[in-house]
Design a protein around this nucleic acid. Structure first.
Lengths: 190, 190
DNA sequence: TCAGACCCTGACCGATCGGTCAGGGTGATC
DNA sequence: GATCACCCTGACCGATCGGTCAGGGTCTGA
């Protein structure tokens, strides 16, 4: 038994993450990954049952963190949900920049697969929390702009240190959500 | 001479747009497009020199509009550039939802190709305008969040009428840019 | 009636994809 | 020295990709 693999397993995972971040999931072949590691394509498939399994393992941790965020947000309401949702998602996005970008950029259809069905649901609940559990179209659009924008910005500013990126993203989120946060229902029209 | 083609040309273009929007550029084969049109794959390649040429024609109009926006923004400065940039991009994104989503979602590498090099430059100038031509990291991050978020939201809310979507997006943009718009340099920290 | 442009087809091409498989090297255990 | 699990390789598979090609209908104009 012991551990599954000494080091190659991890090297393959890291190489895949690097390649996926540059050329995307579909744009990266097992051969590409093998070349980067310095082993054969068959070796990659010895450590991982399939290309999809490789992706799944790569996404396991960020998806688990996303699930935990979903759990934390469940009992919250209104402005509280918005604030916690924004902070939680910014943290997550900053921490898992590459993985989130990968997920968001390439998988309207992969996320539609049954194996990732729960992710879709969690995303919807996150939009719901960010919009303060309102059905108002404007609130939902704001939430979507923020979630997608934060994801993309994280992927784009890969080299910016976490401690610079996080507060800036939080500030944008707060400004964007501001007039919706206090229930100043005076302005309904733009 | 006369016109290039009677109707099939347009049908192929429309079918390609539909398929690309669902399964992405790479995820859509010429066979898929041909099947949707009801002709052979060879017919598709009779009307378009290559798959890439099909994409180029599909993107021609939105890219031209983007170029015009870039031109309009060139002489503007500061808050004026921000306002015009936000309004112009919201209009463009709402109008060309599918194409923008396609471009943004799939082509970190296709955009890197020489044929699309100018698009990359225009995008950078657009970020520049949205951040009020400032080098401040926070401003640039805000701009990126907005541009990416607006694109994604447009793709996500395909069924929302333009007249509902546009004002909502403009409102988000104004809120997100608000504290940066007047140069109230009192707050530098979050 | 014939020529030629136009539109399209089916067969085919080489390349590449994800994945399989038989077998070889190596190191620990008995 | 034999055994066996583990790690890995090169050769190979069927499928599919974008793209080519020779040729066949169809329509028009001379």
């Amino acid at each position: 038994m012991a551990r599954d693999t000494p080091q190659t397993h991890g090297e393959i995972l890291a190489a895949a993450a690097r390649r996926f971040a540059v050329t995307g999931y579909r744009g990266t072949s097992l051969q590409d990954i093998a070349r980067e590691v310095g082993c054969s394509k068959a070796a990659v498939l010895y450590h991982f049952a399939s290309k999809e399994a490789l992706l799944a393992e790569l996404l396991a941790q960020p998806l688990e963190v996303l699930r935990q965020l979903d759990e934390r947000l469940a009992p919250l309401d209104g402005a509280e949900a918005q604030r916690a949702g924004a902070e939680g998602f910014v943290d997550l996005a900053v921490r898992f920049r590459r993985e989130i970008a990968l997920l968001r950029g390439e998988f309207p259809e992969l996320l539609a697969q049954p194996a990732f069905a729960h992710v879709q649901q969690i995303s919807e609940r996150l939009v719901d929390a960010l919009s303060g559990h309102t059905d108002r179209l404007e609130a939902r659009i704001t939430a979507m702009v923020l979630l997608a924008g934060i994801s993309e910005a994280c992927a784009e500013f890969v080299d910016v240190p976490d401690d610079d990126l996080r507060p800036a993203l939080l500030a944008v989120a707060r400004r964007a959500l501001a007039p919706l946060d206090p229930p100043s229902t005076t302005e309904d029209r733009i």
